[in-house]
Design a protein around this nucleic acid. Structure first.
Lengths: 145, 145
DNA sequence: CTCGATGCAAACGATTTGCAAAATT
DNA sequence: AATTTTGCAAATCGTTTGCATCGAG
């Protein structure tokens, strides 16, 4: 599958949008950090590499990433909008540690199948879903005993 | 199980908090509307009954409902905080129509069981989860054909 | 009477937008 | 050269908070 850099440039080209140093830097930083960064975390990291970059540019660029399909906005319900790189088309859900914030991407075909069944039972056609599992990971259970 | 009015008064009494006409009105309106109201929707409905009630009071009271356990905050990711009455302890997930906003509360023990399994596989102890299924209900599929 | 509760308006925090200047094609 | 992009600051939006006043117990 296409590397995000390439997919993004192609998207820009196809829309008469421009590749700028800021966009390059933001994408590079975003890829390096490859977790689930909030806009502000990314802004902080970007600013440490180039302090002249503005907050609004980071927000605008993340939105562009989402439009281009290389990233996806995810909402953990903590008031921050996060983005994650989309590698290909694979959908996934999240297993999140309440304590350390560790975030594991999961896919469970059995659950997805049951979701479809459930929707059918209520005569819904499913378009998408969000599933977040919150708990404590092994390490964090150890810490607080 | 205890009716919400009673549970709420008891909670107030136990904490030296006071039952006021505003709180009574807000709870009554909330119960009547018994869907998944956002703070502002509830505010609008309350204000139509008593225009002197302030926005802040509604926010504060909803938070109280959540603290007292008679309501729960749910976040559909649309930027609004919603609250729903908790009848007893039953947990449930949501099946939401993208078109008309219809919201069906669902519980599927099979899915819950698979979630537990999944968590165990990654050595997590699960504390809670959020699952939202989005799609189109029968009626809305009819409309736009 | 004593605190807690209220309404108002100002404050908030994350995100968005208007605008004039700067940079890409 | 034309048009998009940028950085800045001001604007938004939902929600929260400070404060003086009001009211429940």
């Amino acid at each position: 599958m296409k590397p995000p850099e390439k997919a993004f440039s192609e998207y820009l080209a196809s829309r008469n949008l421009k590749m700028t140093p800021q966009r390059r830097l933001i994408l590079e930083t975003f890829i390096q950090a490859d977790g689930h960064l909030s806009s502000e975390e990314l802004y902080t990291q970007v600013k440490s590499k180039d302090p002249s970059v503005g907050q609004a540019t980071v927000y605008r660029t993340l939105k562009l990433f989402a439009d281009s399909g290389i990233a996806e906005a995810v909402d953990f319900g903590d008031g921050l909008l996060r983005y994650e790189l989309r590698y290909g088309q694979d959908h996934h859900d999240h297993l999140i540690c309440d304590e350390c914030g560790r975030n594991i991407e999961i896919v469970d075909p059995d659950i997805e199948r049951l979701q479809e069944e459930l929707a059918r039972r209520y005569d819904f056609v499913l378009r998408r879903h969000k599933m977040y599992l919150f708990g404590l990971c092994k390490e964090c259970r150890g810490k607080n005993q």
